[in-house]
Design a protein around this nucleic acid. Sequence first.
DNA 1: ATGAAAGCGCTAACAT
DNA 2: ATGTTAGCGCTTTCAT
Lengths: 325, 325
Amino acid sequence: MTDVAREAGVARVTVSRVISAPESVAPVTRAAVEAAIARLGFVPNLNAGTLASSRSRIVGALVPTLSNAWFADTIDGLSVTLSAAGYQLLLGQTRYDTREEERLVDAFIGRRVDAMVLTGTQHSSGVRAKLQRAGIPVVECWDLSDSPIDTVVGFSNTAAGAAVARHLLARGCQRLGFIGAQEHRSSQRLQGFREAAKEIGISNVAVQLVQPPSSVDDGARSLEALIAAQPALDGLFCSNDTLALGALMACRHNKWVVPQRIAIAGFSDLPVAAASVPALTTVRIESRELGERTGSLLVQRLRGETENSPRVHDLGFKLVVRESA
Amino acid sequence: MTDVAREAGVARVTVSRVISAPESVAPVTRAAVEAAIARLGFVPNLNAGTLASSRSRIVGALVPTLSNAWFADTIDGLSVTLSAAGYQLLLGQTRYDTREEERLVDAFIGRRVDAMVLTGTQHSSGVRAKLQRAGIPVVECWDLSDSPIDTVVGFSNTAAGAAVARHLLARGCQRLGFIGAQEHRSSQRLQGFREAAKEIGISNVAVQLVQPPSSVDDGARSLEALIAAQPALDGLFCSNDTLALGALMACRHNKWVVPQRIAIAGFSDLPVAAASVPALTTVRIESRELGERTGSLLVQRLRGETENSPRVHDLGFKLVVRESA
DNA sequence: ATGAAAGCGCTAACAT
DNA sequence: ATGTTAGCGCTTTCAT
């Protein structure tokens, strides 16, 4: 930068201003500086800027894994929104591990991110404390919460689970099953599913849990296990579409006709859900919008447009009834 | 840090050493410093460290979009590998746009990333020049190249396309079609596909191109357009599984029996490819491994283990023959 | 509209 | 094994 200043015959601050607040510099001066920048191929060191200004223009985001299309879509939406506003995205994967989440939060705070995005609303007290102490905007997404760290953008996983149960029961299912990953949002869906089933007197749900991240094979194996234990099963809720697709595959292998023999519902509405045979009934989550909304909320906050926006943003969900249930 | 030093009764450097090279500090001193760090809840400012040492421990990665599961998987593998080695991942999406790629490269260099990962081997001269000038390790992935910027980790897209053509021809297809996204790697696959077809005298390939990122619907619509123009089409190559799944969907709607009426092959082997009906013949790319390999190569380089490793790493591909072709 | 001075919080290089 | 000094490349604040 000193070089650019010398080349343009101005002080270093002026170069700095041309970069971060061009309109505060006289057009002639600005042109000279810009020419010098171009001539020297100068790329400002943003870390030095961060150090001096204590604003990094980096947002940190944590997801369990990118291998699940729904989280990848959320990050896609987030990344586009942030990028358009001049923010960079630092990404971490927790692998559904609390200790890893805490480690990453530390690392990101060490980098002085301007804001953090977390997946889910269950976090260790360490994470909550560190984030609070950092004093930066935090968005938790993919669920709702009564005690958000700061802001929440999501939907009610229990309500979604309940909606699926009501649908299966309405179409006449009597013996319900559930296949889900061992993680919090999946448990919430199960809880809602159970409560709604109980309301009409069905208190027995056959449950099969798998280690996240869940695979198509997990879904197939789990359904076979479920049917082995409970041959009369006629209604199945899978906590995500990947598992549901696997369950459909198991049905084809075993000639269990869907939805007659057994009705199956998934969760999240992957693009392939509509293309499966039979087409998958599922709960649509607008994963990408979730990320976009998170991003624009954060950008507003960071711009200081502190409009007293609510702490909880419920984006809802939608039961998409196709052929499988 | 000054606070920690005072609290522990040592100089600031000592605190610095406890953090970055603990073994160079006497156990007693170290314990005192660690206690002080814990007491004050001190989180070192990594940007200051970057500025002073000119090592950021950040790797920048650029993909066209995360909404394609194959790229998301590559980033997943990359992220895990880098994270284990103490590196953070700065992520950007180019949206298949060269200008956006260049903008992001600038932004990442400005952040003084220690290394860069790019998708594909076609980049503007500006990008090449900037990266060269930055003097950092660069890995281009998802293709091979004769003139890599630095290192390449991928496979031959043309060879993969040729393999698909040979397979379709071997099973008796006579009138070939291709559906692909308008982007370079897809074109490479088409090129290989065409060349292999020509070798046995078939020089006519009906082509339908779509704007990336490609969707299931794109695949369905494209096949219908293709068949409208060329009713005798009996062999189809889709440049990715998403498009192929859409094509299968169109076949079901129109009662075109697969593979008898028309054989269909996809690309990348998404988990759902095996679950589709009929099961999709495709080319398996180990997307996740591709990211892991990229990460470990980079970590080696950054550690200075400059072992004269080759510049081009061909991870290959595998034709997976299922039911659809 | 432009500049001078000071300092952000670390690490490198050289002592001791 | 620990400390001293200098400086990384910016932005801030206050002048002019």
